[in-house]
Amino acid sequence: MTLAIIGGVLWVLGIIALLTGVFPADAALAVADRVWPILLFVVAVTIVAELASKAGLFDVVAARLATLARGRTALLWVLVVALATVATAFLSLDTTAVLLTPVVVSMAVARRLDPLPFAFVTVVLANTASLVLPVSNLTNLLASEALGGGHDPVAFLTLLGPSALIAIAVSVIVLTLVFLRRLPKTYPNAASPEISDRLLLRVAAVVTFALLPLLVVGLEPWMPATAAAVVLVAAFAWRAPRALGIRLVPWSLLVFAGGLFLAVGALEALGIGRITAVLAGSGDDLVSLWQLAGVGALAANGINNLPAYLALESAAGSPARLAALLIGVNAGPIVTPWASLATLLWHDRLVAAGIEVRWSRFVLLGAVIAPLILFLGVLPLVW
């Protein structure tokens, strides 16, 4: 609700800018033409992930991983890391935060393991692993569109793949050193999750796993995501119509994102680009890229990563600088709770599950991980 209220205020400010002529109508139409495919993808992939979760897909996958680990906590840890990374890379960081978090927590509780280490793995990797593909983060979709040539996953991986690998590795190493030694080396077996409709589970599994490669073959991401959403909605309308509802659509996020695009467009018309250019500097040398990544991370932790990216995008005039900005606004916002929407959603899910998390612990971990990623993750951009 808070997100929708903020978005509503931004819409009002943007409309005022339009009516007063501060923000020209043709510029507003250009913004709309740029963002509608991105927002459509967000809606479609959210529906796919929500319905797959309702079908029990994530519960079954987590239970299979626990069985595959054969009671060895270290192996289960590695498998959860892999699951969080893949979920983030293909289905976006919000999916990992919202849908994977309760699944991983319940899996740990059922096996008498402390759920907090696994919860921290999901939220940190939801942010830091969101550098992998264009579909991993809304900022990536904006950046890949700005790079030209469509949302090409190969070009994106070529540019940011090494940095993404560093971000994931740093996150996993720090989290492993902090948490794994506190967990028992083994855990007992637990009952398999109950599935009410196995046919629906199979349909959800086929659709979801078919969607993953389609998101990286060069199609506009909204196309396969929308097709997958339509198939799953049809399957649920047939088998479990009560699971369908207007709440499947992430309205708060849409209102917030739409208002934000409009407000930032108005600010750019007022000349905010001149201010961000001074803060972000220029040049593709290592120090300049560190500066841009650092400013992006500071702005993201100060306000939020999406407005931070939008405000600084015009200051990133080359592929290397755009990549440095993404490192800052994707992997950097893990210090303050509000820096990433995924972090706030993650906390809401933990509260709903009855898990208490001290924000001080989150801040301390982020204050260690984020600077390391910023320092090391920018290095491949100049190699």
Rank of each mutant, 00 (worst) to 15 (best):
F58W: 15
A299R: 00
G259I: 05
V35N: 05
L219K: 05
A210S: 14
S318W: 07
D33H: 10
L312S: 04
R242L: 10
V104W: 06
F41Y: 15
A66P: 09
G281S: 09
A339L: 05
L254R: 12
G283F: 12
P134E: 05
E50Y: 01
L165D: 13
A342E: 11
V80C: 02
G56N: 11
A55Y: 04
G317I: 03
L253N: 06
L183M: 15
R247N: 09
T186M: 00
D152K: 06
L93E: 04
L99V: 14
N127H: 09
L68A: 14
V42H: 03
W11V: 08
V230D: 05
A191I: 02
R181Q: 01
A25N: 08
S192Q: 11
T85D: 07
F179Q: 01
S282R: 13
I173D: 01
S196M: 07
A237D: 10
T2L: 08
G14D: 01
I15Y: 02
G71N: 12
N140I: 08
V103S: 06
A17N: 08
L133W: 05
V174W: 08
I16V: 14
P221W: 05
A243W: 08
D26T: 14
P224E: 11
A62D: 05
I327C: 09
W11F: 10
A55L: 09
R111N: 11
F120R: 11
V217Q: 10
L279F: 05
R349K: 13
V249I: 15
G245T: 12
L160F: 07
D94T: 04
A293L: 12
G8H: 04
A299M: 10
E50Q: 13
I166A: 10
V48E: 13
V178F: 05
A311K: 03
A225N: 00
A25L: 15
R239A: 04
I369F: 13
A97E: 02
A126K: 11
A17S: 13
W36L: 04
E356R: 10
L350T: 00
G377C: 06
A297I: 00
S318V: 01
M1E: 08
S171I: 12
L3P: 06
V249N: 03
V329K: 04
L100E: 07
F209K: 09
G218P: 08
L254Q: 12
I166Y: 07
L341H: 03
R112D: 11
D152G: 09
A190V: 08
S252K: 13
